[in-house]
Amino acid sequence: MIANYGYKDGSGEYYISIDTDKCLQCPVEQACTRACPKNMFEIITDDYDDQVAAIKQAHRRTLAYDCTACKPAGGYASLPCASACTAGAIKHSW
């Protein structure tokens, strides 16, 4: 399942998508939960009883602000969360 967490508002579209099928055999011991400086990732049991990564509820409506530390206005090279996940499950839309 591809889970898109985030939102779209007048200022833009901000989604972090997690390909949860890739979480099923996580090669890096849930590194996403440790890589994010804002501690935004958690492991949940989803509706189909799989253990998968998710963005914590408290951050789902504030991604544009919460991710600013990793995204300076002058541009960014790599994101800690996406780099830590070697399975390539994590993508940002903006």
Partner: peptide, 9 residues
């Protein structure tokens, strides 16, 4: 450099 949050109240 600048960063804005336009078009969202």
């Amino acid at each position: 450099d600048f960063a804005g949050n336009e078009k969202c109240a």
